[in-house]
Design a protein around this nucleic acid. Structure first.
Lengths: 248, 248
DNA sequence: ATTTAATGTTTACAACGGATACATCTTGGT
DNA sequence: ACCAAGATGTATCCGTTGTAAACATTAAAT
């Protein structure tokens, strides 16, 4: 007997598409509780299924958490990409990306911590850490691409053809941004200035540190550092296409 | 009646000094399992007491974890201080401290994560986060002192008399080191060079970034980074005092 | 020496993660 | 159109957990 005559929209399959529902519920719980200590049963309860149902989609609790973390990484990547639109200057691009990164972390500290937490990096499962580090790599790639772009544009003191140089630079920026995010999450120890401003200053400092010495002979880092902000240095742009190789 | 005639060392009190024993056990468990998901009962079991005994010393499990994290911070602080002995040059000092920091984190990733985990920064308890952030501040102070020392010695581009400048600088270094530690813990994405070397390169890069332009006119950061030694651009130096309200 | 507060034990309970067995639905081959 | 097979969800069970209450023991203060 046909059963979905009048309730056609909610249950396409057996129950609905659990899995997505479970991940979304977990996401909401992480956000609400700012912790991932909630019980799997609670997730099932909120999703309206029996407490055993989730095990059909995730072998164990950690796998749900890992899937949740992956969504976090996707949001991070997408957010950074969105932050890029309309900006051409590599340095401004980098600052925009980094600021978005930190803000996303501050928006949902528990999710951010989950992404870098023990659920994914340790563990015994074969694919759990793998899929997560893939997601992380994708986000990292956005950053590396911008750095390469800046390098090719001659703005950053990175040789575009030396992969190790680019790698190290990306790592250094990533480290600083990641650390800054964590510190911000943990409420930076009594600072005089507001958090936003502090983050801004620190980010500019980091990015300015990448600058190749500008033509006016002033060392980039110090210039920004003193707040005088060599504003605008008109972005020097390489030949048109930006042809980029831009990698994922 | 004297009771500690023949078992004088182990049981000064009722059972012994639990609390310390509990913290030590928790520490060992965190290290062994590389996770703090172990049960409080397991801790009690290993300490040789009933599963309810720990509650006489810690209101709930999170409090034990917090106390454990505090020990982690103390170790961090002590380790950094130990790394300082015998070194005079501020830059070498800073590098030594940072390397120790990263290594301690790598030695016991789970403990490191616990220190910056949700057990301490969120939570509702009043003193749990407080005591932990105090411990963190102590460790941070070591770093700040060295930076101030370098500033006073004229090695770092920080004005020793501007507290905000020193603060921002310390934050930037702390961010970079903290982020690097995390990244290293999570197994830095396929790097060509060995982890040790990578950490070393990155740390030197960070510390060199603080350098006040040395007399030979070489810009510290670029020189290190590109390895090519950017020869020349004579470093522009603001008038003597750097009075500059400096940067960070 | 007796009281008291600190410390540890026993017992109890609801909730949890996870396993096994079973029910139901979707689907794909015929 | 049918039916077997697999995917999905439910009911029940088990050992363990975090935590509470009541009770016991000991160290210290009086």
């Amino acid at each position: 007997m046909p059963k979905k005559i009048h309730a056609a929209k909610t249950q396409p399959y057996h129950h609905g598409d659990l899995r997505r529902a479970l991940i979304e519920t977990a996401l909401r719980l992480v956000t609400e509780d700012q912790d991932w200590a909630f019980s799997l049963r609670e997730v099932a309860r909120r999703a309206g299924v029996s407490h055993r149902a989730p095990y059909n989609h995730f072998p164990e609790k950690l796998d749900l958490l890992a899937a949740t973390a992956v969504v976090g990484f996707e949001r991070l990547r997408d957010g950074m990409r969105r932050a890029m639109v309309g900006i051409d200057d590599p340095e401004a691009l980098l600052v925009a990306i980094c600021r978005t990164y930190v803000c996303l972390g501050l928006d949902n500290p528990a999710l951010y911590r989950l992404m870098f937490g023990p659920a994914l990096s340790d563990s015994g499962s074969v694919d759990r850490p793998t899929v997560a580090s893939l997601a992380g790599a994708e986000a990292r790639a956005v950053l590396k691409d911008v750095i390469l772009l800046g390098a090719r544009a001659g703005v950053f003191a990175v040789s575009p053809d030396d992969p190790q140089d680019a790698f190290l630079t990306a790592m250094s920026v990533w480290s600083a941004v990641h650390g800054l995010t964590m510190l911000a999450i943990d409420r930076i120890p009594h600072s005089d200035l507001p958090t936003d401003e502090l983050i801004d200053k620190l980010l500019r400092m980091v990015v300015a540190g990448l600058r190749r010495s500008p033509p006016n002979g002033r060392a980039g880092r110090q210039a920004i550092r003193s707040g005088i902000a060599a504003s605008a240095r008109p972005a020097f742009r390489p030949a048109g296409t930006t042809r980029g190789k831009g990698r994922k």
